[in-house]
Design a binder for these strands. Structure first.
Length: 734
DNA sequence: TTAGGGTTAG
């Protein structure tokens, strides 16, 4: 009997050893599983072998599925993992954080939230370690409602004093735009480490409270906490955003004095800070001192150059990067787009594709913006269909950029179509569409849309009001503009920025209320800048108010002594008054300082090619035909009463010479080229000009649209003109 | 906890 028991015991022991060996083997197999199918096979094998279903084996199966979910974002792996979870005989809370940790490593935070909902539904308790990864997922999605719910659960379970959870809560509130709530959690903490300080400081930086960043950083040092290199990166980034060069320099000195090791992150942060503060030469100094230039710091350097328009320097750095990634391609593309070289941006995009680099959403935004700058509709349509085909078509920022692109390419209907079909709209979508109507001179639609937006509970922001004020300004709606300006302050609690005052000055200037414009400039709470004096100056020139124009030009030149536009206007004003000595002085000054007047240039897109014309241009291969067509049109138009108006020509020429000069304006050459060419895409002629259209060209375009029965859409420096049947959409108010 | 590129205006 005793023996028999001994045998049984020994058999049982040997079975148990065998079973644990097998469990160990299965675990090893599970670790090498790369597909859900494989996991399922191993699971079936475990069930068939009737192994002891230990919690640890279940956990291993679980984690395996979670890893698959994370790496492939496969919903079936997620569901399989959850079904395994429910089969655990005694689901212990300690499993939950393992799950959350795996999920939070995944590419999509949605999986983590889904997991949270399922566990809650099953009544599974979460352990304290589950909350940081869960809150991280909430932060990534900026899902405030979920965040509040999770915070409630934290308090209910008594975890509110856990410093890791408190830090995660601060990050969550900051990511959801609730910086005050983040600070409340921060202030309640008794045990803050350097990570907590960094998260709070970064929260202030991300929400644009740069003064708080510096204040809290100082507070941290006073509290005795030593900054680490990550905090220094955060503070440097805030200095860059705020343009606070002196504080940025102080941090740089602190780094040197305290012997911090300047790792690649700090190098990049320093270059970025100097470049963002407009001290690109100091950024270059840091960059030049680096023994090796890695990809990220080079991208920061090239982007610094590109942002201030030094695209050639940017390109030089770009060309030196041996292994370029998507970010540096995008930086260079957007550098060209923003520096008014949109064609180079599009060419670089083509080159990127030839090198088989797949664009992401940010690249697409730069490319769409480049199309908007170039104003080339055929290219714009191609980019739109490319975005659709490559899965960007439903993304909100892409649609916003498309609305703007179609509007700036002269296709208002295209902009409306995109706007109408957007699956979701935010304040940027509405503002872009309002601005689209504004630049096309349709103030009524812009105002109607503004009211519709309010009905739909979308709060207008400062940019929305720029669009609305612009619409009023370009349609001569003085009273409406004034109403919107005060409603912005009184009803919407938005304090007007300098740009809003700029719009109001422009509104008065266009309406010939020049004294009122000057009064506003003198009473506004900002010192007037170049743009504001420029508005007044141009208006004075257009309305023949020479004395006030001279005053405005001189104020502008005090701010920017080499401003080409102001010097040209000043010289024009003196020419109108026949003060030839003063004209000579200004011209001499311009020659002496090497200042060149911005040359007028017009672009026309025909059959997917963009042709550029300068004034009196003879470079085009069909130049002879173009000038022949111009002569023919002029003869034809003279029959209906056209005489070239030379009032805009302010050089000392004989009247006949002036008439010739005005006929050779770049937009007229572009128009003639459009008329002699076969237009496959559309019967309408689209021209983009870099400067404001002159009075003569405006009358010329109106007459051509009538005599040749053709629609001409022209974008000048600030707006669109739609010429049709002898009239213009701007109603001659531009 | 950590860097470099992006959408509306100016």
């Amino acid at each position: 009997m005793a023996m028999s028991i001994g045998v049984n015991m020994s058999m049982s022991m040997s079975m148990s050893i065998c079973s644990s060996r097998m469990v160990g083997r299965e675990k090893g197999v599970l670790e090498s599983c790369k597909t859900l199918r494989h996991v399922k096979q191993v699971h079936a094998q475990i069930l068939r072998s009737k192994l002891d279903h230990s919690n640890s084996l279940h956990l291993k199966l679980f984690l395996c599925c979670c890893t698959l979910t994370s790496s492939s974002s496969s919903p079936s792996a997620l569901h399989y993992a959850l079904s395994l979870f429910t089969q655990i005989p005694n689901p212990h809370t300690r499993f939950s954080h393992q799950l959350f940790r795996q999920f939070s490593r995944g590419p999509t935070p949605e999986g983590t939230l889904l997991l949270y909902r399922l566990l809650r539904r099953k009544g599974t308790l979460l352990d304290r370690f589950s909350f940081p990864p869960l809150l991280k997922a909430v932060s990534k999605l900026s899902a405030l409602d979920m965040g509040l719910e999770v915070h409630g659960l934290v308090s209910k379970l008594g975890f509110h004093d856990d410093p890791f959870i408190q830090t995660a809560l601060i990050a969550m509130y900051a990511a959801c735009g609730r910086i005050t709530d983040a600070r409340l959690v921060f202030d309640k903490m008794s045990n803050r480490d350097v990570v907590t300080w960094n998260i709070m400081i970064d929260g202030y930086s991300q929400s644009g409270h740069y003064d708080h960043v510096l204040r809290l950083y100082e507070e941290m040092k006073i509290s005795g906490m030593e900054p680490d290199s990550i905090i220094l990166c955060t503070v440097l980034s805030a200095c860059g955003h705020a343009g606070n060069l002196s504080y940025g320099k102080a941090i740089h000195e602190f780094i040197k004095d305290n012997g911090f090791r300047v790792d690649s992150h700090l190098q990049t942060a320093l270059v970025n800070m100097y470049a963002s503060c407009g001290a690109v030469y100091l950024a270059r100094e840091v960059y030049d001192q680096l023994p090796s230039k890695h990809l990220v710091v080079s991208t920061a350097m090239l982007s610094g150059y590109a942002k201030i328009g030094l695209v050639e320097d940017a390109r030089f750095i770009f060309d030196q990067i041996v292994e370029k990634d998507l970010v540096c391609w995008s930086a260079m593309i957007s550098g060209y787009a923003e520096s008014d070289q949109p064609q180079e941006a599009l060419e670089l995009f083509n080159e990127m594709q030839r090198q088989r680099i797949v664009p992401d959403q940010i690249t697409m935004l730069s490319v769409i913006s480049a199309c908007a700058h170039v104003g080339a509709l055929v290219k714009a349509r191609w980019v739109h269909s490319y975005a659709d085909k490559n899965g960007f078509g439903r993304a909100l920022p892409i649609n916003n950029a498309l609305v703007d692109m179609y509007a700036k390419c002269g296709n208002l209907a295209g902009a409306r179509e995109v706007f109408k079909n957007m699956p979701r709209k935010n304040v940027i979508s509405w503002s872009s569409m309002i601005n689209a109507f504004a630049i096309h001179g349709d103030a009524d639609s812009a105002i109607a849309l503004f009211h519709r937006m309010k009905v739909q509970n979308i709060k207008p922001n400062a940019v929305t009001f720029i669009g609305i004020l612009y619409a009023c300004s370009h349609a001569g709606l003085v009273e409406e503009g004034e109403k919107f300006f005060s409603s912005m302050i009184n009803d919407h609690d938005i304090s007007p920025q300098r740009e809003h005052y700029g719009c109001m000055v422009d509104l008065y200037c266009r309406a010939k209320l020049l004294r009122k414009a000057l009064e506003l400039i003198e009473t506004m709470p900002f010192p007037p800048n170049v743009v504001i004096w420029g508005s007044l100056m141009s208006a004075c020139q257009n309305h023949g108010e020479l004395e006030l124009g001279e005053f405005a030009a001189k104020r502008l030149l005090e701010l920017e002594p080499d401003h080409d536009g102001a010097l040209v206007v000043l010289s024009n004003i003196y020419a109108k008054e026949k003060r030839w000595d003063d004209v000579g002085l200004v011209r001499k000054l311009m020659r002496h300082r090497g200042i060149l007047k911005e040359k007028a240039c017009s672009r026309i897109e025909l059959n997917n090619e963009v042709h550029v014309f300068m004034m009196a241009d003879r470079y085009h291969k069909q130049s002879d035909e173009i000038y022949k067509k111009l002569d023919a049109i002029v003869s034809q138009l003279k029959l209906v009463g056209y005489t070239p108006s030379t009032s805009g020509i302010l050089v000392d020429l004989k009247e006949e010479e002036k008439k010739e000069v005005v006929l050779w304006h770049s937009e007229k050459l572009a128009l003639c080229y459009g008329l002699i060419s076969e237009r496959k895409e559309s019967s309408c002629i689209r021209i983009v000009k870099n400067l404001r259209i002159c009075e003569d060209c405006h009358s010329f375009m109106k007459l051509v649209s009538k005599v040749y029965r053709i629609e001409i859409v022209m974008r000048d420096r600030t707006r669109f003109h739609h010429f049709n049947g002898g009239t213009c959409s701007c109603r001659d108010y531009w």
